[in-house]
Simulated assay, not measured.
Amino acid sequence: MTMQELRVLKDAAMCQPSRWRGSAAIAVLCCLAMSGCSNWMKAGMLQIRPFTGFNDVSTASLVHVDSTASGQTLALAQQLQQAYAAAQTTIEHTHGAGFKSPNVYVCASEACYAKYVMIADSSAETGQGGNTVILNAVRLLKNDSGLPIFTHELSHIFWFQHGQRCAPRWWLEGMAVASSGGGAEKVSDAQARQLLREGQAFQPALDNGCFNPAQRGSLSWAAYYRQAAMFVSYLRESAPRFAHALELMRQGENVGLALQTAYGQPVAELWEQWRKKEMVLAQ
């Protein structure tokens, strides 16, 4: 799960015109005039909050574990340290470029996790401008999903570092699930197809993902993630076009235009072709 809906502090030009920059008082007054001010303030604090009470898994390790961790949580952190390089290679291969390795913090309690994330009932989040991954071992250990969820979060880290922080939610989550296998465990492809057959489908909105909600209709988040991943996988079947689209996105082109340029069709048409294909498979 990303924080892109709330990482828009630097984009809030309506609150911080150039002549006001550097004025904390004006920024606070402007924030107070807006809805969701407390969330904005929390997001800003999380960008600078130091991580305390963690131990390195090993010398010079990028994985840090809650100092109160039990044996199971310690084992999870060690597993992530051992699999880190392979997980990053997976994302670099599927996304078409390298990225800077983030620090990873494994919390052993809900209280620890809630201290560093926007959404306390999630299993993982990215933070601090694409430089950290925070994992909730309490939730990840229940279904042995630590490694796939970690890899999922690395996909979000990649796009943060490659300038797609406010990409449409379906794209960010679809790429993350399709590349990692984690994040939509509660809904299978077959179940997602059945939902399509019943008329329950996500919409591939191309709006700014920071300011606009995901268009998931009546779908659960797991079903939304699964359908988005299936659509991304469909696009990936045309490898040269998909690689071209990724290259354009890495260069700063928005998702909709990148896909339309690479495939020669609007995203809405590509989505409809995918939907029809899945409907046939659902029968």
Rank of each mutant, 00 (worst) to 15 (best):
M1V: 15
G98T: 08
K186D: 11
K10L: 08
Q194A: 13
S179Y: 07
Q78E: 10
W159V: 00
G146W: 03
A97F: 13
L154F: 02
V232T: 04
Y225P: 00
L9V: 15
L147R: 07
A69H: 01
A75R: 07
A25P: 04
R139W: 07
V65H: 05
H95G: 03
Y234N: 11
K42I: 12
V8G: 10
T126M: 13
N39Q: 14
L246G: 05
W20K: 13
F211Q: 01
R275Y: 07
V187I: 12
W274F: 14
H156N: 04
C166D: 13
W170V: 09
A268H: 15
A222C: 06
A108I: 04
A229H: 01
Q81G: 00
A201G: 01
Q200H: 14
A25L: 14
A184N: 02
E278T: 04
A60P: 05
Q273A: 15
S179L: 07
G146S: 01
V63R: 06
Q16V: 00
A167H: 00
A190G: 04
E278W: 02
F158N: 05
M14C: 12
A83Q: 14
L76A: 05
D121F: 09
A258F: 04
F160Q: 09
A77H: 04
G36S: 13
A167Q: 02
C31N: 15
E237F: 10
T126V: 01
V267N: 08
Q88F: 00
N39V: 14
Y225R: 10
W170F: 05
R193M: 06
F158Y: 06
T94P: 00
W271R: 05
E269G: 11
F211K: 09
Q200I: 06
I119V: 12
S218Q: 00
A258K: 10
N131Y: 07
M1N: 03
E272S: 12
G129Q: 08
